[in-house]
Amino acid sequence: MSDISQQDSWQKLKCFTAARIALGRCGVSLPTREVLRFGIAHAQARDAVHLPFDAEALAARLTAHGFTTLMAQSQACDRPTYLRRPDLGRKLAPAARQALCAAETSCDLVFMVGDGLSSRAVHEQAEPFLIEARSRLEKEGISVGPVVLARQARVALGDEVAECLQAKLVVVLIGERPGLSSPDSLGLYLTWQAHVGCSDADRNCISNIRGAGLSHALAAQKMTWLVLQARHLGLSGVNLKDESDLIEAQ
């Protein structure tokens, strides 16, 4: 593109931050290239929110890796409802509840994978993370139950899932609110003896799981540490401080 816009003389400061600095200007306005660059990032973040969760495709890939999967759906019937009614995203649809309660399980831990606010995050991160996580958990002698794939899900939907499956521990993997530079970020929430009515203070969270953020291996390592501690202490949440960093440092 032509050079009608005025460049800023402090380009080299860009190496210190990912923030959009030294963008240059045309008069007082953004140059065309920056308007377009921003537009692409916003489009990707929007698409991440509205892209439907392809649970069948994920189930097929997980099954190929030896996981058992179960399907579930919250009471939010579509995306507009999901965005307006967070309360409905925290409750299982009656049919899903029946199906989960009828499932025969015997395990220490269940995973729930929910679309949350970024299906893209789930599509891209859930499978490789689960493979990494299972191998670490099994080394510690922890049995991994079925993976529940939940549509239009909020974090607290995992509480009802855990109740239905009578699991001691539930780990929710969910698409995080996408930022302009992070449309693909996965969040993880671990809750000991989850039940309907648990609050955020009862959970431990690992966020920003993605290529440019926390790697799958490191996230799985942190999660395994939290799982072992939760089982040892019989609790999760604010009273379980994440000190997995200290272990790494030793």
């Binding site: 931050t17 990912a18 923030a19 959009r20 600095i21 963008l23 200007r25 008069g27 007082v28 306005s29 953004l30 920056e34 921003f38 990032a41 916003h42 609110r177 996408p178 930022g179 302009l180 530079s181 992070s182």
Partner: peptide
């Protein structure tokens, strides 16, 4: 005033230095 209106810490879009100049102009 957030660089390029993109807050990379809070993950939301606000107004930029350019936006402020626009309003002044």
């Amino acid at each position: 005033g957030v660089p390029g209106a993109d807050d990379i810490m809070l993950n939301y879009q606000s107004t930029s230095f350019h936006d402020a100049l626009y309003l002044r102009r």
